[in-house]
Design a protein around this nucleic acid. Structure first.
Length: 306
DNA sequence: TATCCAAGGTAAGTT
DNA sequence: AACTTACCTTGGATA
């Protein structure tokens, strides 16, 4: 495998790998030490994280194994190809986090959540993996959502050998479409099993393409994604924010709904769409999704008061 | 040891 | 359109 490092100076501001990958935005990486999403693991370590990247528009047109860890601020990587453009894309290393924070509202709740996890970036997951993993997220704990993706990769993903080890790629749409509902239920997907199978089939058969939403205006893009089975407005917002670069999307999950009720009750409108507009504006507009993700992680881990 | 409960919601059926 | 209800599974809490 090729090796390299990205010095802190090339990271466009503060960056923290662990919070970026373990904040519940992405379920497509694993920790080499097996401690992904374990709440009793302290921050500040330098664990290796691994993923197998499918061909992506614009950055590398073939599959690649990528390993990365952060030591003294710099990102060390090992990969089957030059990982710099891949990491820049997947971890949004070119986001100016200082500008992002400056654009977010000067509210104690928001600022304390930024302070809780300095350097956390949003991610840019591959669209199909993002779509399926957030279908799996319904009524589920983060550690189990991740476990499901690992199970899916082990059962239906291609094996890739690199650096004397074998990795499992995330399943292709064809591979998941070919699985049966029973196969998927055996992986503990529960009622999500038929959703995942049918959505994979829709992508495999070219009935719809999650990446196509990138070309649409925000609310049309969200509507477009809800044509996939198991995808409602909340999951659609997650795909838009964590994969397709709609940084103003604010997924209204249980934590944010509680935060709205407790801290922004005037943003509570009747419908998802209206509440979404109101809280998006309250969180600063353009980077509202960044604020949402910081709030979500800080609230979920108890770093900021209820 | 047994039971209960909630976890990053969505689809389908009613009003 | 807004409102109910059912839905798989599992780890942690409660009795």
């Amino acid at each position: 495998m090729e090796r390299g490092a990205i010095p802190p100076g090339d990271l466009a501001g503060p960056f923290d790998l662990q919070s970026t990958l373990e904040s519940g935005q992405t379920y497509l990486w694993t920790r080499a030490d097996g401690a992904m999403f374990e709440d009793d693991v302290a921050h500040g370590g330098s664990a290796w994280y691994e993923t197998v990247v499918p061909p992506l528009d614009g950055v590398g047109n073939s599959r690649a194994v990528v390993r990365v860890r952060q030591v003294d601020g710099r990102l060390e990587w090992e990969s089957t190809t030059d990982a710099v453009p891949l990491l820049t894309h997947l971890l949004r290393l070119d986001d100016d986090l200082t500008a992002v924070r400056a654009a977010c509202p000067d509210l104690p709740l928001v600022q304390r959540s930024f302070d809780a996890y300095p350097g956390m970036r949003l991610v840019r997951d591959p669209p199909f993996g993002a779509l399926v993993s957030f279908i799996c997220s319904a009524q589920m704990r983060v550690a189990r959502i991740h476990g499901m993706q690992v199970s899916l990769a082990e059962a239906f993903g291609d094996r890739v050998t690199a650096g004397s080890r074998t990795y499992h790629a995330y399943p292709t749409p064809d591979a998941l479409a070919a699985a049966t509902e029973t196969d998927l239920r055996e992986l503990s997907l529960g009622y999500r099993a038929p959703y995942v199978r049918r959505t994979a089939e829709m992508v495999a058969e070219d009935e719809a393409d999650p990446a196509a939403a990138r070309e649409l205006p925000y609310e049309e893009a969200r509507d477009y994604l809800t044509r996939f089975v198991g995808v409602g407005e909340k999951v659609a917002d997650c795909v838009l924010l964590f994969s397709l670069g709609f940084l103003h999307a604010v997924p209204l999950d249980t934590w944010i709904q509680t935060a709205i009720a407790d801290h922004f009750p005037d943003c509570e409108r009747g419908s998802y769409a209206e509440t979404s507009r109101a809280i998006r504006e309250r969180l600063g507009g353009a980077y509202a999704g960044y604020a949402q993700t910081y709030l979500f992680y800080a609230l979920r881990t108890g770093r900021i008061g209820e």
